[in-house]
Computed example of a mutant assay.
Amino acid sequence: MDDPAIAFGVVLRALRKEAGLSQEQLGLEAGVERNYVSLIERGINQPSIRVIFKLCAALDVRASSVIEAVEKQLESSTSKVTSKRR
């Protein structure tokens, strides 16, 4: 996976589930619609920086740690593809 939007969605979904929240609950806490959370998690929509901070606040995580997790997601996917090509 080399798409940051998809990687962000994967990380967001994992954090949401770890927090025990539904998409609707996260949306309510962050002040966004449930369907928007779904679109972000599927990599269809990309949140603004403002929405990223709202989501992180609702999940009680630092935005920088989320971005770091997205980078790791991208790196692990890239390394899997690279090792398969060898």
Rank of each mutant, 00 (worst) to 15 (best):
M1Q: 13
M1T: 11
M1P: 11
D2T: 11
D2L: 15
D3A: 11
P4I: 04
A5V: 04
A7T: 01
A7C: 02
A7K: 10
A7P: 02
F8E: 07
F8T: 09
G9F: 05
V10S: 10
V11I: 13
V11E: 06
V11A: 09
V11Y: 08
L12E: 03
L12M: 08
L12S: 01
A14E: 11
L15V: 01
L15W: 07
L15A: 09
R16E: 00
R16L: 01
E18H: 03
E18Q: 12
E18W: 00
A19C: 06
L21F: 07
L21S: 00
S22Q: 06
Q23A: 06
Q23N: 10
Q23K: 06
Q23R: 12
E24K: 08
E24H: 04
E24I: 08
E24A: 11
Q25G: 01
Q25D: 05
Q25S: 05
Q25F: 00
L26Q: 06
L26W: 04
G27E: 04
G27V: 06
L28Q: 13
E29W: 03
E29N: 13
E29M: 12
E29D: 13
E29K: 14
A30C: 05
A30N: 03
G31E: 04
G31T: 02
G31M: 03
V32H: 03
V32D: 01
E33A: 15
E33L: 09
R34I: 07
R34A: 14
N35C: 09
N35P: 02
N35V: 15
Y36H: 06
Y36K: 00
Y36C: 00
V37F: 01
V37L: 04
V37T: 07
S38H: 09
I40D: 09
E41V: 06
R42Q: 14
R42A: 10
R42E: 12
I44T: 11
I44P: 07
I44K: 11
N45S: 15
N45A: 13
Q46K: 12
Q46D: 13
Q46C: 13
Q46G: 12
Q46N: 15
P47W: 05
P47M: 09
S48A: 08
I49T: 11
I49P: 01
R50D: 15
V51F: 07
I52W: 02
I52D: 00
I52K: 02
I52A: 06
I52E: 01
I52R: 04
F53I: 10
F53S: 13
K54A: 10
L55D: 02
A57I: 00
A58D: 01
A58M: 03
D60Q: 07
V61G: 01
R62M: 03
A63C: 10
A63Q: 05
S64T: 13
S65H: 02
V66D: 04
V66F: 06
V66W: 08
V66R: 02
E68S: 15
A69G: 02
A69E: 08
V70Q: 15
V70Y: 14
E71Q: 14
E71N: 15
E71Y: 12
K72H: 14
K72T: 13
K72P: 05
Q73I: 00
L74H: 08
L74N: 07
E75T: 07
S76W: 08
S76T: 09
S77F: 07
S77E: 15
S77C: 12
S79Y: 12
K80A: 15
V81H: 14
T82H: 14
S83N: 12
S83C: 10
S83I: 11
K84T: 13
R85I: 14
R85S: 14
R86L: 14
